[in-house]
Amino acid sequence: MAIEVRLPTLLRSAAEGQSVVKTEGDTVGEVLRNLAAGYPGLEGQILTGDGSLHKFVNVYLDDDDVRYLDKLDTKVQEGSVISILPAVAGG
């Protein structure tokens, strides 16, 4: 199914300026991998080389941080929205 993925401003240039991209997949990980396959500029920005979530992003499925769900194995449903957010921190 096609899932809506919302991108932060920093990543939009790698997705032809789009803030929202419809991407196929049945789990969060599948959607993100398909997203990176469709927009190679996103490769390595969301997922690391070993396929895990990059530490500089937070990924939400609707209102929930996927780290507190089943991480990349979290199932998505029709109408779900995945939001990719930059981790904002400092000292």
Partner: peptide, 19 residues
């Protein structure tokens, strides 16, 4: 979210709401 006098971390849910 860091609850620190030396570090800060924007709570992810706050970022989502602000967005």
């Amino acid at each position: 979210a860091a609850k620190s006098a030396k570090l800060y971390s924007i709570d992810g849910k706050d970022y989502l709401r602000a967005d």
